[in-house]
């Protein structure tokens, strides 16, 4: 097995495990304020120290993982849920449908994603739900493109020609033959968009537009930490390291899966 698959899988398992664990247990309450022990350095009582309100940083990072995963997973679901059917439709129908879908994705790509997500969340109201939608919208054209590109190749294959020759309907072929054959490509894309979603969510909550306090989020923690950067520099290190490791894990997992699924790309 490739090392990227192993390391990526392990980091992703760690991320998801940490998030799941935070549902039932964290060392302290992630929202519990303890002003007497604020800005404490890492120690046996607070493994990663405490923040400006005395909250336990490790507990906040664990609960932050949960919130970050929730936003990006739902954003991926929104993107794939709408984008994949659109892409499959464009591939199956061709002609005008294909042309219109492709021009629409071109148009969507003209808007810098994060910037537009900032605009949407700021106007529609800051919060996790709007962050999911804003990030999800920009996943739609990505999945449309990927699904269409992969599906078009499958439509040319002999077994699809055979299925058409024996009178199977386009719809039945799209669902029964094409979709299962592009599932692997879509899975790889999902891990990539999952990783991008975590970065986007962190960016939105850094500027105060994502998950709202008292719910902890990695981006918000970094913003708070910047205020105390001279007194407690480590506060700015841990949440960022959590984001980087989560994204690194997902990217490696995506690379590993791609190599496994498409041997031609090995070693690139």
């Amino acid at each position: 097995m490739k090392p990227s698959l192993v390391v990526g899988g392990a980091l992703t398992a760690l991320l998801v495990g940490m998030a799941l664990l935070s549902l039932v247990w964290t060392p302290y309450s992630p929202t519990g304020i303890d002003i007497l022990h604020k800005l404490a350095p890492p120690s046996a009582t607070h493994l990663l120290g405490s923040d400006s309100l005395g909250r336990d940083v490790l507990s906040m990072i664990m609960a932050g993982a949960r919130n970050s995963i929730a936003v990006s997973v739902i954003a991926v679901a929104v993107g794939a849920g709408i984008g994949v059917p659109l892409g499959c439709l464009a591939a199956a129908k061709g002609g005008m449908v294909n042309e219109v879908t492709m021009r629409a994705t071109d148009l969507a790509f003209a808007f810098p994603a994060l910037l537009t997500a900032v605009m949407i969340t700021a106007l529609a109201g800051p919060g996790a739900t709007n962050a999911m939608i804003a990030i999800g919208i920009f996943n739609i054209p990505v999945f449309t493109r990927v699904a269409r590109g992969a599906a078009i190749v499958i439509w040319q294959r002999d077994f699809v020609m055979a299925a058409r020759a024996v009178g199977k309907t386009r719809w039945a072929i799209a669902v029964g033959d094409v979709l299962p054959n592009i599932a692997a490509v879509l899975l790889v894309q999902m891990t990539i968009q999952f990783a991008l979603g975590i970065i986007a969510d962190a960016g939105l909550s850094y500027v105060g537009l994502g998950t709202q306090p008292p719910q902890p989020s990695w981006g918000r923690m970094l913003n708070d930490a910047q205020t105390y950067i001279f007194r407690a520099p480590l506060l700015a290190v841990f949440p960022g390291a959590a984001i980087t490791l989560a994204v690194l894990g997902l990217n490696l997992l995506g690379d590993g899966l791609r190599d496994r699924l498409d041997p031609r790309l090995r070693g690139r």
Binding site: G203, A225, I229, A236, G240, V247
Partner: peptide, 16 residues
Amino acid sequence: LGVAMPNFWLGILLIL
């Protein structure tokens, strides 16, 4: 590692 780093965190580290 560079791909995984959010640029704003890198910014904070550079400030640090």
